[in-house]
Design a protein around this nucleic acid. Sequence first.
DNA 1: GCGACAACTCTACCA
DNA 2: ACTGGTAGAGTTGTCGCG
Length: 790
Amino acid sequence: MKVRFWLLDISQEPAGETSEIRLWGVDRKGRRILILDRGFNPSLYVAPKIEAEEAVKSLNSNPTLRQAFSTVEVEEKKLFGKPLKVLRVEAKGQEAFETLAKKLPREGWVGEVFHDDLRASSQYLLSLDVKPCGWNEVEAEEVKPPGGVRVEACYLAKERPRAVEALETPKLRVLAFTPIYSSEIGSPSPLRDPVLAIAAVTSQGERKVFAASEKGDDKGLLEEFSRYVEAYDPDVVVGYGSNRQDYPYLTQRAEKLGVRFRMDRMGQHPHQSLYGHFSVVGRANIDLLDFAEDMPEVKLKTLANVASFLGVKFEEPIEVDAVEAGRLWKTEEGREKLQALCLRRAEVIMGVAEAILDFAYQLSHLIGMPVDQVGAAAVGFRVDWYLIREAWRLGELAPKRVEQPYYPYKGGMVLEPKAGIHEKVAVFDFTSMYPSLMVKYNLSPDTYLPEGEPEPEEGVYVAPEVGHRFRKKPPGFYKMVLEELMRARRQIRQRMKGLKPSQALYRILDARQRSVKVITNAVYGYSGWRGARWFKAEVAEAVAAWGRKTISEALAIAEKLGLKVIYGDTDSVFLAYEPEKVERFEAEVEKRVGLEIKPDAIYERILFTEAKKRYAGLLPDGRVEIVGLEVARGDWCEAAKQVQEKVIEIVLREGDPGKAVEYVRQWIRDFKAGRFSMEDVTIWKTITKPIEDYEVRAPHVEAAKRLMAKGWKLTYGDKVGYVIVKGAGKLYQRAEPSLTASPADVDLDYYVENQVVPAALRILQIFGITKNHLMEGLPAKKEGLLKFFS
DNA sequence: GCGACAACTCTACCA
DNA sequence: ACTGGTAGAGTTGTCGCG
């Protein structure tokens, strides 16, 4: 019978001489099913140094190798566009595959081995074009599920499944969960501290809290939660910080207590897998924090901040640290409070999931990577996967990741801004400049013509400045891929036009076009990434060089038309707005440069300092946009950011720097009178490497060390919040973790002198205002300030 | 031994 | 653990002085 299923998860079981691929999914009736495919084995591709037929003979005559493979075939493949005769060697199961991967490269006749770095389940997804988070079809017969497996139906594949294009997502059961831990001091430790509660919220609206005993005995809680998960049988399990925190903690805790922590469809505990994510067999485990990492607008990635950003409504508080939780658990009232908080937290996680899951499914579908991995995989690996699949369709082998030397090259062009305030400034952007250039000039590793090679008949494009040459024909890999991506995005957006944002299909299409955009925009960076399989420094370098040429041409056109250029960065041009000239500029650029340029915004008023990449502008709709300045940064205290934002607004909206000066002076008076909170003065900075690797004693590193000395676990990637306290010595000696600092110790002078005043002055210096104008005790000179607004 | 300054480290931004 | 270009704060090293 034909079974159509939406693929949720894929796993592989070693099964002797054949590996068994397990496809976990949901069928059209909404049943949770498992499809066993025993007819697939992973293969390796061998490029021989000798004649293919001779190579086959050598392979067959080696008894160790002969045992490990079932078949060998000579195939015509391509590598970087060049035809390549290879031997496809099909392994007898996973173990044999690993043996071959190890032994084959040592054979004298073997040139290069391919796909030995792709595990069986990956090869399966690749070679069969089976798509995760999408519909697939297979001829199969119903069988009894393997022992321990819990599904509504199980099938044995009779043939290889195939992807079926269909947009809708089945109704999936989603479970959001979040634990609360206890600790006497510092971070909780699974060997020492109990889990006090786990809240679970389902997409059907069920809400539950599992709690430890009054004394904090959590053995029953873990067992109960496991049973609940099995009974509800979710397809998707979402958490926040679950890969980093909850799964490691809960599995270790369960092990210590002698309980089996069961989340999957096989009665096993979660295990760590690729990209540091935890795999829950048969379900998709998604850590929403992974997706929050791609939201640059949210500086401090707390659940509350992410939820607010996404417009998820909730009541505070939804965060509690383990020490506070441990303290609260001691009273009846505290326990109730904590459980209510825990439940609210799980509800917010569900809310965030609703905002993110469509995108996660679409990204997974597009790049062909299981949805539980896609969030945890870095951008480079997402692109890698997408390209491996596209390569396969074109008969290309996936090149190996090879160690590459660092090769710095020149990037985009940034103009010196015209400092000061400008009225009516039009901003133009080249649309998808880098991808478009890659398409236009056929920039790809396979079209690159190394120095010394004779020019082909079809001709070459020569990159400006750097001189790299690229064959005009045939279309290169990147060109084909990018053209397809850009075409797909246009098509999706076209389809969306007839729909309302409230419709489910609209949301799916929107999620899909966003995922296409993410990949499109990452290809240039990927091409210059040393870890990329299709790395080619000359490609990235040529793209950037053509980019500089392109914007230079646009600038020349502006100049010729008598348009004043205010600023420009990589693919954007800021021009003093003159309606007719600007229109001619747009037409002229498209005609002469051959790339699409579009008006992005017309600022009513915009201000630049002397610095590049920093400005603030007032839009016609009244919004103020702040770019690059302290307001836009996560490593300045709130106080400094708020003052700067207010200064910018006064200056842009009211055009009155004198008023801004008065505002800052009053703010300082209030601040010195003690009107501030710890949040206002906390500075957050990321620990970017292991503490011992730091070469200098930076304030945030010293604050981190103090926290660690007090039992807090910090690893790189974590943010440390600290305040500067009164006292003598270097700044790093006065950096106190904000958790342990008290408001009375805060060094107010530091904040005025080194945070608030510099941030305010960044803007106000444009008007000749100095530190003296802002600080108490010195007269604010008003004369001369208003001349800028005559 | 001291202070001015340059060099370097570190983070987070823009495109 | 996608690229290069950039600002800015803070630490550390160096040099001249006498």
